[in-house]
Structures are given as C-alpha cells and as structure tokens.
C-alpha cells in the first residue's frame, strides 16, 4: 500500500508492507488498535504508542511526546495524466456523488467519495473548472482506473 504525505513542505512516499496482522515500514512495525492508537514495534525489540486522528486531509500523529501533522496527498486526484478525467485509485464502491454535470468546481473541492478496502477516498478537483460528465452513481461498483468523472479546466 502506497501513500504520499506532506510534512514541513517536503513530500514523503510511504510504501507499507503487510504481513497478516502487522504493517511494516523502514524496519518498524505497526499494529492498529480500535481506540485511535497504534502499537509500534521497533527492530531492537522496544515498543511505543502512537496516537492518531485525522482532521480534514491532515493526519495528526503523537509519537514520543511530539506531534507530526502529515497532510495526505490524495491518490487519483491528479488530472494531469488523464486529460481532465478523474480515476478510481482502486476497486470499490461509490459512496457519494457531490456534483452534477455542468456544475463549476474549485480546486480542492470534493467531487466524489469512494469506499475501497475499508478506506474512504475523496476524489477532489485538482483545478478550477466545470464538470462535463459524471460516469457513476452512489452505490455503483467501480474498477481500479475507472474514469469517474470529467472536469474541463477553466481558462
């Protein structure tokens, strides 16, 4: 599973590897709990807790007495390589469609919400423009890479 975050102006790629119950990254392991905490296991056998909460697009992480605010860069929200089309980052179900064809939208506006692999994905406009077509309705299943909607950039 790959994610991209922004912290203090820098962009970080995180490629998580999964074993049955544990996620690993940079030789650390993590086991999520139901109460908003994550158990961290280090290579040397020591352990720690991390607290986590999401506000807007930002993950707030408390670890070892410090707070890190990591802004998630939405996957699939980039329109550059799809000529204005916005595609599903992975197979899933459309939870909500927030715009209709003909509607003008602003950069950063949420257009659609998908659920895939127990995750919610917000499909956001990458630039100001007009929605030219919406290809799915709430409840529809979508395949990875499916073109969800088209946005024509404003001049």
């Amino acid at each position: 599973m790959q994610h991209e975050f922004r912290y203090a102006g820098e962009t970080y790629d995180v490629l998580l590897e999964r074993t049955p119950k544990i996620w690993t990254f940079a030789n650390h392991c993590a086991h999520p709990r139901e109460d908003g905490r994550i158990r961290i296991y280090f290579e040397d056998g020591s352990k720690a807790w991390a607290h986590v909460a999401k506000v807007g697009d930002v993950w707030w992480v408390h670890h070892s007495g410090r707070i890190y605010t990591l802004e998630r860069i939405e996957a699939g929200a980039s329109s550059d390589e799809h000529h204005g089309g916005l595609v599903a980052p992975m197979p899933g179900v459309v939870l909500e469609v927030l715009v209709t064809a003909g509607e003008s939208v602003e950069a950063g506006q949420t257009l659609m919400v998908l659920e895939a692999m127990k995750m919610e994905h917000r499909i956001v406009a990458s630039e100001d423009g007009t929605v030219t077509s919406v290809h799915f309705n709430a409840g529809d299943r979508v395949e990875q890479g499916a073109n969800l909607l088209d946005v024509e950039a404003a001049e």
């Binding site: 599973m1 995180v14 993590a30 994550i38 961290i40 986590v52 890190y68 990591l70």
Partner: peptide
C-alpha cells in the same frame, strides 16, 4: 514512525 502511523491509519 509518524509516517508509518499515518499510512497505517489511512489504510
């Protein structure tokens, strides 16, 4: 660790 935490939480 913070990045891993956020990524696991997101996933």
């Amino acid at each position: 660790v913070a990045l891993m935490t956020a990524a696991v939480a997101e996933t």
